[in-house]
Structure formats: structure tokens, C-alpha cells
Simulated scan of single mutants.
Amino acid sequence: MRLTVHEFISLDGVIQGPGGPEEDPANGFTAGGWAVPFVEGDEFGNVVTGWFARAGALLFGRTTFELMRAFWPDVDPAADPVSASLNTLPKYVVSNTLTDPGWEPTTVLTGDPVDSVARLKDELADRPGELQVHGCARLAAALHAAGLVDEYRLFTFPVTVGAGKRLFTPDAPPTGFRVLETRTTSAGGVYTALEPTAFRRGDITVEDGREVVSIVD
């Protein structure tokens, strides 16, 4: 089962609190809701619905899990395919403090988050669909740093918000990416699906009066 990460991201790389002012005010974040002006229309909805259509299981950190649990059980699954996926698919939440998930079917993963997810990937290796992460800034950043992510699906919106949680943190390892898909919505959102590859470097020199581009490694 491939592990895929889905994020709404600002031009300056922030993924914190895209959906509302109270979604994630941690560390004094006051710009919550920055993605909402750009998510109207069928183009955006079709992309997001397509994400969940590929899901076989869902993986959360505790903060995002509790936000989802407070919202999606109230949305009629018969009317919303995203709600149908969130309310019925197996869910896994990484937490050493959560004892009663209260949103079935959910399994709590304890211990080191990276080790727990690595074991889960092995256990689900032969299952259909994807193990999907949506949001979960700290968990997603940790999985990226550990090299456990098979595909990134990023919706970039034309807005900058300043300080906030990021998927690609300053201490993350250099990573290359292969673009699998890209499209732009009429509201200005840019959707990009990316597969991680080896990080490569190049150099530009001058030989016989001409620029020469070479790959270093």
C-alpha cells in the first residue's frame, strides 16, 4: 500500500490551518483559513474527491484526527463521497495519549511515530488502495524526513501567510521530485502530484564562449 501525503500549501510553504481561523492556532498562528477563498468550484472538488477515491486507509496525527472527528461524522456520506471515505475506511492515528478514538473504525498507533508508520506500511503492503495522510503537519514532515512517502499531492494557493508549520522544514533532507500530474483551477490553485526521486546537482560553466550545463551527481 503506497503512502501518499495530501496538503494545501501557501506560496511560502505553510500548511498550517488552511481551513479556518480555529483549525490550528498553535504557536500563535493567526492566519488560519487562508485557503478557503480559493477552494470554490468543481475543479477543486473534483481533485479532492479523486484523492479519496484512491484511499484504502487513512493515517492521522492526533490534532488533525480530532478536527476531522468533530466535523465529518455530521456530513451525510450518501451526499458526499469524501465523507463516505472518512467515515467508513480504516483509520490509524499516531498518538501516545489517545485512549478512546471515538470514531470507528480507528486504530491507535503508539510508540515512535516513524517506526509505527513503517511497520504499518509493511502490514498493509498487500492491501488495495493507498494509505493517505491529509494535513497532519508534524506527522507529514516526519514521514518526509524519514523517506516513507511514496507520493505527494499538493494544492498550492496564491497567498503567503508568513510563519507557520511547513511540510518541507529547513532541516529536511534534500529531495528531488518527478512531476506526475499538474493542473490549475480558475481560482488560481495549482495542483501538483509529485514522486520523490534522488536529489541531483548540476553546474554551469563556460567552454569555448558557450554555456555548458552538466550534472554533478
Rank of each mutant, 00 (worst) to 15 (best):
E123W: 02
E123V: 04
E123D: 10
A125F: 06
A125P: 03
D126G: 14
R127N: 05
R127I: 04
R127H: 11
R127S: 12
R127P: 01
G129F: 08
E130Q: 05
E130R: 02
L131C: 08
Q132N: 13
Q132W: 11
V133E: 07
H134C: 13
G135Q: 03
G135N: 07
G135C: 04
R138M: 11
L139T: 02
L139V: 03
A141Y: 03
A141H: 03
A141K: 02
A142W: 03
A142N: 00
A142G: 06
L143I: 01
H144L: 14
A145W: 00
A146R: 02
A146H: 04
A146G: 03
A146N: 00
A146W: 04
G147D: 05
G147Y: 01
L148D: 02
V149N: 00
V149S: 01
V149R: 01
D150C: 10
D150P: 05
D150M: 07
D150H: 03
E151P: 00
E151C: 09
E151F: 03
Y152H: 09
Y152L: 11
R153H: 14
R153S: 15
R153G: 11
F155V: 15
F155L: 15
F155Q: 14
T156W: 13
T156G: 14
T156F: 14
P158D: 09
P158T: 07
V159D: 08
T160G: 11
G162Y: 05
G162N: 03
A163F: 12
A163N: 13
A163E: 15
G164M: 09
K165T: 09
K165E: 12
R166I: 12
R166L: 12
L167Q: 07
F168N: 12
F168L: 15
T169L: 10
T169S: 11
P170E: 09
P170S: 09
D171Y: 00
D171G: 01
A172H: 08
P173Q: 14
P173W: 06
